Amino acid sequence: MTYIEKTEEFLRKTFEDSNYFVLNQSEKNYRLEHSYRVANIVKKIAQKEGLDEEGLVIAGLLHDISYCDKFDNEEDWKNHGRKSARIARRFLEEIGMDSNRIQEICYGIAIHVDDEADFEGKKTPFSISVGDADNIDRFDVYRIYETLQVDKFSEMGLLEKREYVTNKVGRLGKLMEVNFGTSTAKDLWCSNLMYQKEFFEKLLSQLEHSGTILYELVI
């Protein structure tokens, strides 16, 4: 088996054996799907930027593996990158990966939440790309559906919907200025934001024409 195949097996087994996920199957499914999406995003970045593709795919798969345990508070969530890095390190050492690659993979995983690790490392295009891919996925097409569902958009009144969407459009415009570790990540980010911005602008246009009849009187 390749390192990636072993990593996939380890990720799936860890999630399957999780007592927390046994009681939260939908969250397990989402976290697994998200991990694969992030792995595929970093794969694109690695291919275009000439980075270690195998290493980044492994980092993408394992970046949220600590979700197998319940987070009791915000501090637990804030530390999940560092905890994921510790879990990843033990696994990668067991399968005999080179120590330098392990260090780089684990550093990228550790810093992907709040840009901080609990061990020494360098912020390189490789390590930054893990967090970049995580952020890119947050603004991909799937997240439009998920965000509207979580925010209970369908239950809002018309005026509340208009205000909600107006704020979305404004925020998406500001996010265009966020910096990334590679030009490829920046391009993917901007592409996702533009798609979402266009979607919400069209939605806002529909909402502005909801509940009102507009016409010109022809004499």
Rank of each mutant, 00 (worst) to 15 (best):
E93V: 07
Q206Y: 04
F126R: 07
A110L: 07
A110I: 01
N167Q: 05
N135R: 15
E104S: 15
G55K: 08
L172K: 08
L159D: 04
E216R: 13
F153W: 03
L188D: 10
N19T: 09
D17T: 11
G170V: 01
M176W: 01
G96M: 08
I58E: 10
D52L: 06
R138M: 10
E208N: 13
D137L: 05
D69G: 06
L193H: 05
K43V: 02
E163K: 15
D64H: 12
T184K: 11
G81R: 06
E8M: 13
T14L: 05
Y195T: 11
E49P: 06
N29K: 11
R162A: 03
E94L: 09
Y164C: 12
R37V: 11
S26F: 09
R90T: 12
D151T: 10
R90L: 12
P125A: 14
E104R: 12
L207H: 04
N179F: 03
S35L: 00
T14V: 03
E16D: 15
R31I: 03
T124H: 13
K44S: 14
L172N: 02
G55Y: 06
W189H: 14
M194I: 04
L32P: 01
A88N: 09
V130K: 09
T14Q: 13
E5F: 00
L62D: 01
D17I: 02
I4Y: 10
E198N: 15
T124D: 12
N79P: 00
L61Q: 06
D134Y: 13
V218W: 00
I144Y: 08
I136C: 03
Y195F: 03
M194D: 15
Y107H: 12
P125V: 04
L214F: 07
I219W: 00
L62M: 09
K122A: 08
H34C: 02
L32H: 02
I41T: 15
I65P: 11
F153K: 06
S127P: 08
Y30V: 01
F119P: 03
E198F: 02
G55W: 03
Y67I: 00
K83P: 02
H209Y: 09
E9W: 06
N24F: 02
S18N: 14
R162D: 07
K123P: 00
S35M: 04
D52H: 12
Y3F: 06
A110E: 04
G121Y: 07
V42L: 06
M1I: 06
G55T: 01
D132Y: 03
R37Q: 07
F21M: 14
L203K: 12
R162Y: 00
L56G: 13
N179H: 10
K70T: 06
V57M: 15
R138T: 10
G81K: 01
K13Y: 05
L203P: 07
K78L: 14
C68I: 13
E27A: 11
I105P: 03
N167A: 12
K48P: 01
T2P: 12
L148H: 05
N100Q: 14
E93Y: 02
R101L: 01
Q149S: 06
D151P: 02
F10T: 11
R162N: 09
E146M: 09
